[in-house]
Simulated scan of single mutants.
Amino acid sequence: MAITLTEKAAQQVERYLVRRGKGVGLRLGVRTTGCSGLAYKLEYVDDLAPEDSVFECHGVKVIVDPKSLAYIDGTELDFVRDGLNEGFRFNNPNVKDECGCGESFRI
């Protein structure tokens, strides 16, 4: 089981953590929503819960709750710039289908 970050994604997370002035890492999870059923959620973590799984990549910790891990195991998080747009991209090998707008997915 693993969650990984590309070097660009790790640099971006590190920048945000420094800007915030606190935090141990980035929480990656899923929530029920959208046309396909699941959507990713990202938030910065100040305290770890005992049940959290922690993965470290390029010096950045990625924290995942047990319920989300089944849906995102093997995911690589990248940070991309496309023209004026920039953001995180999820490369999840478990995805079977995505909605047309790209906001939600199905396993």
Rank of each mutant, 00 (worst) to 15 (best):
V62F: 06
M1A: 10
V54Q: 06
Y40C: 07
F105L: 10
D65P: 08
R15E: 12
E98L: 12
R31M: 13
V13I: 14
T32S: 08
Y16F: 14
P66D: 01
L28M: 11
R89D: 07
A39F: 04
S36Q: 13
L28C: 08
D97S: 15
P93A: 09
V80P: 00
H58L: 01
D47R: 14
S104F: 05
G83N: 12
F88Q: 07
R27P: 09
C99G: 11
D97L: 15
K67C: 02
T32Q: 14
R81N: 08
D47K: 14
C99K: 11
K22A: 13
L28W: 01
T75E: 05
I72W: 08
T6K: 03
V30N: 06
K41R: 13
E7R: 15
L42V: 02
I72L: 11
L26W: 04
E56H: 03
F105S: 03
G87L: 02
A9Q: 06
S53I: 03
D78P: 07
V30M: 11
I3E: 01
I63S: 00
K41M: 11
D52Q: 09
S53H: 09
I72S: 10
E103R: 12
F90C: 12
E86C: 02
C35W: 09
V24S: 00
K41A: 13
E98G: 06
A39W: 07
V64C: 03
R15I: 08
E98A: 14
C99L: 11
R27N: 10
L26N: 04
R89V: 15
G83L: 03
L38Q: 10
E56M: 00
H58V: 02
